[in-house]
């Protein structure tokens, strides 16, 4: 296989990688926000359930979670998961929502009570308070930890190879075993580096954009 052939194969595989990345990002951020509300709920049972859920998700390997989501419906409920991409997406979305939840919770709790009280005496509703005053400040504070987590996500997509999704690592491994050449596996690093490089630049831009105020 020529260098060009391998590059084309890996570029196609990039589609899966970016697919998992995009789906996870789009769904786990809102889900993480919902998780963070639930974990701050006034109802104690809800808080405890959330704490246990987050403990389980953060306390077990993502690879194991992918396997569970893919095989358990078939093994336990006799409803085999036919769509591999769906299984991976579910596992990734829930896993990343748990991590984002903790980042959001930390961000929300770092805003002083005074901001809420200022909104209250000015007559803002709870929704206006959150979306117009609190959330913008939270976003500014969580950009650095979020960029960290999102860059990790790019590399975590490689775990999808465990249930045979044709993402970059799996594709490279197949090339290696079929054509008896090892270098394509090392070559995958270039693809991850480019994707993470772009994200790093994007996040730096976002940080700069939010730099117009302090506090």
């Amino acid at each position: 296989m020529t260098f060009l052939d391998v590059t084309i194969e890996l570029l196609i595989a990039c589609g899966y990688t970016l697919g998992i990345f995009g789906i996870t990002l789009v769904f786990s951020i809102p889900l993480g926000l919902i998780f963070s509300f639930l974990s701050r709920s006034k109802i104690k049972v809800v808080r405890i359930i959330m704490r246990v859920l987050i403990w389980i998700i953060r306390g077990t390997p993502l690879m194991l979670q992918i396997i569970v989501v893919f095989y358990v419906p078939g093994l336990v409920f006799s409803m085999p998961m036919r769509n591999r991409m769906l299984a991976v997406s579910i596992a990734f979305v829930i896993n990343y929502a748990a991590y984002f939840c903790e980042i959001f919770r930390g961000g929300i709790e770092s805003i002083s009570v005074g901001q809420y009280e200022a909104c209250q005496v000015l007559g803002l509703t709870k929704a206006q308070t959150f979306f117009k005053v609190i959330l913008p400040q939270v976003i500014k504070r969580i950009v650095p930890p979020m960029s960290n987590e999102i860059i990790t996500l790019v590399k975590d997509t490689s775990l999808a190879n465990i249930i045979g999704i044709g993402e970059i690592i799996l594709t490279a491994k197949e090339i290696v075993s079929v054509h008896a050449i090892i270098w394509p596996l090392f070559y995958t690093a270039v693809f991850y580096l480019i994707m993470c490089g772009i994200l790093t630049i994007v996040f730096r831009k976002i940080e700069k954009k939010l730099d117009y105020y302090k506090g």
Binding site: S112, G114, E117, A118, L124, Q128, K132, V133, Q137, Y213
Partner: peptide
């Protein structure tokens, strides 16, 4: 008027003053 002001840092002075009149 609070002891420690509690202005909204992400809004300009004008933004701080017009936010509640517009929303409420």
């Amino acid at each position: 008027v609070f002891q420690d002001f509690n202005l909204f840092p992400q809004y300009s002075v004008l933004g701080n003053l017009t936010l509640a009149p517009m929303l409420v």
